[in-house]
């Protein structure tokens, strides 16, 4: 990338065509300014990424670059490792769990964030509501995980969930010990921990909507749910996508919550990609295999990055 071709660096005026700076070609001055940043990126991001990709074709045992194994790691990863991906009905494995996280964690966090933001703007104690919902953001993920381990504890004397279920004569249940429920229980904790982030950002966006637009919709005949779905949601679609992308990136890299609450268990049923990468590379010492999982993570992030870059370009043209 050169300075002249970056849309962010060219001021765009009006709604007309994007004007390009003169001297679109190569320039030594541009190289001088971009050089230091480019060098840092190369050393700390580009080189490790390429090295990791390289490592994924090696055994890499003991951290040593020992033996070239070709596609062995990759074939094993996608066909012979049920802990990473088992295609069947229902599918399972770390990659599939991550898909569940992406779909349910991101969509429910955004949805609850939106609903709480819309409702909070209509009550007097808005600041309190938002403060309480935002509180989990201020707690370290590991502490949050420990709190919820207690909540989910099968012992009703420790576990809030089973204490409540006990009143209704249900249980005790071991939600974290059951492969059928463990992922849902973890996703619920994730939503609880992140909904405040979505609420705060979306609430600011909703406040930017002119009250006259909402009143116009009301006079036009819209009910409150129609106003929510047909006016508010489309008008805050950009902040929604910002929140969704941020959550998405976070969830592809998710590790700490799983590590503290279940260490991927029972068995390997609550593993996610980042946890598998850690598990294979470090405790199991298969660095080549771990590197292949890391490359999968990187590839999953590529579409998100392309989406982000496109959106920023579109915004730059609109302004």
């Amino acid at each position: 990338m050169t300075a002249a071709s970056s849309p962010a660096s060219t001021p765009v005026t009006g709604s007309g065509e994007q004007s390009r700076a003169p001297g679109h070609g190569f320039s030594w001055a541009a190289l001088l300014f971009l050089g230091p940043a480019g060098l840092l990126l190369a050393v700390f991001i580009v080189f490790p990424a390429i090295y990791t990709a390289f490592l994924s074709f090696n055994r890499g045992r003991g951290g040593e670059f020992s033996e070239w194994v070709g596609l062995d790691n990759w074939i094993r990863l996608f066909t012979q490792d049920p802990n990473f991906l088992r295609i069947g009905f229902p599918p399972s494995g770390a990659l599939w769990n991550n898909v569940l996280w992406i779909i349910f964690f991101v969509s429910f966090t955004v949805l609850f964030g939106l609903i709480i933001a819309v409702m909070a703007t209509r009550v007097k104690y808005e600041a309190w509501v938002k403060g309480i919902v935002f509180l989990p953001q201020a707690i370290a993920a590991t502490s949050l995980a420990i709190i919820w381990r207690f909540v989910y504890s099968p012992d009703p004397n420790t576990g809030l969930l089973n204490a409540v279920l006990g009143i209704a004569n249900v249980g005790p249940l071991s939600v974290l010990g059951n492969p059928a429920t463990v992922n849902w229980a973890l996703i619920a904790v994730g939503i609880w921990g992140s909904v405040g982030f979505a609420t705060v950002i979306l609430s600011a966006a909703i406040k930017g909507i002119s009250s006259e637009v909402l009143e116009a919709a009301r006079v036009d005949g819209a009910t409150e749910p129609q106003i929510f779905w047909r006016i508010i949601v489309p008008m805050v679609s950009l902040p929604i996508s910002v929140v969704a992308v941020t959550l998405l990136v976070g969830v592809i890299k998710l590790f700490d919550l799983i590590f503290v609450m279940t260490t991927g268990g029972p068995g390997a049923s609550s593993r996610v990609i980042a946890f598998s990468m850690y598990q294979e590379a470090f405790p199991s010492g298969q660095f080549g295999y771990g590197a292949a999982i890391a490359v999968v993570m990187l590839l999953l992030l590529v579409p998100v990055m392309i989406f982000n870059i496109r959106r920023f370009r579109a915004e730059a043209v609109q302004q």
């Binding site: 006259e212 637009v213 009143e215 116009a216 919709a217 006079v219 009910t223 489309p234 008008m235």
Partner: peptide, 21 residues
């Protein structure tokens, strides 16, 4: 009676158009 059931239409000072439509 709710605004939508009053059979009225209103024009606002800021126009209040729906920007996404």
């Amino acid at each position: 009676v709710a605004p939508k059931d009053r059979d009225i239409a209103m024009v606002f000072q800021s126009y209040a158009l729906y920007p996404h439509m």
